[in-house]
């Protein structure tokens, strides 16, 4: 066991876990943010997606020991205080989620995409979100929702 100081959602957390513990289980069971989900444990489904310094990563395949000092982890709980991130708003507007289990990961993947590409094409959306499986098949609605979030972001800016 070893002590790690992690910054998750603007707060510092001190955890005492084995060095090989995946970030996923640290976030869920040590820190208590349950929005990050376990889907495959192999980096194949994206249910465990979190943002590491703004980049979408698979927390199930990221050992806690691989995090560096100063790294910032953002989970779905930290995306906005009141469900008002443009992606969340677009998701609600389009009623994207069905079972909802994959959606924390989907929302974060979309947020990461829009942070670097304010007006992604279909192909760019497909590429950025191909790592996130939705077994309920909400793909078409998600694509529409990413476009409408992009539009809202742009009208905000202009």
């Amino acid at each position: 066991m070893a002590i790690y100081n992690l910054q998750v959602n603007t707060k510092k957390h001190r955890v005492d876990v084995d060095s090989d513990t995946p970030l996923l289980w640290v976030i869920r069971d040590e820190i208590g943010y349950k929005g990050t989900k376990f889907g495959c444990g192999m980096g194949l489904c994206g249910a465990c997606t979190v943002l590491l310094n703004g980049q979408a990563i698979r927390s199930c395949s990221t050992p806690v020991s691989s995090l560096k000092a100063g790294d910032k982890v953002l989970t779905i709980e930290g995306l906005s205080a009141d469900v008002t991130h443009p992606v969340q708003k677009a998701w609600i507007e389009a009623q994207v989620p069905q079972c909802g289990y994959c959606q924390s990961g989907q929302v974060l993947a979309a947020a990461a995409l829009l942070a670097t590409n304010s007006n992604p094409s279909d192909a760019e959306i497909d590429m950025a979100m191909a790592g996130n499986i939705c077994r309920c098949g909400t793909y078409q609605k998600m694509r529409e929702a990413v476009h409408s979030a992009a539009k809202n972001l742009q009208t905000k800016k202009s």
Partner: peptide
């Protein structure tokens, strides 16, 4: 149930 499924608060068995 939709808002709770975009902010991580919906409770699944997991």
């Amino acid at each position: 149930d939709v808002p709770s499924k975009v902010d991580g608060t919906a409770v699944f068995g997991m």
